[in-house]
């Protein structure tokens, strides 16, 4: 319990950042944004599975 509380109170390091001029962003946040753009592009390009035929109901 004490060790867990101590662990919970340890600051988590912010991690590496990248900088372009005025813009500073953590690598983690940059990766998440890039991943979102990739998912967006894939959503536009990948074919959607064909719908179930239900004409014969």
């Amino acid at each position: 319990m004490i060790t867990q509380l101590l662990a919970a109170s340890q600051p988590v390091p912010a991690g590496p950042v990248v900088q372009w001029g005025w813009l500073t962003i953590t690598v983690a946040n940059l990766l998440v944004i890039l991943l979102m753009v990739v998912v967006f592009v894939l959503a536009l390009l990948l074919p959607f599975p064909a719908p179930r035929e239900d004409e014969d109901r």
Binding site: F40, L42, A43, L44, L46, F48, A50, P51, D54
Partner: peptide, 14 residues
């Protein structure tokens, strides 16, 4: 119950 054909795209899933 049914959707127009253009809804069959991943972008409408989000």
């Amino acid at each position: 119950e049914r959707q127009p054909v253009y809804v069959a795209s991943w972008i409408y899933v989000f």
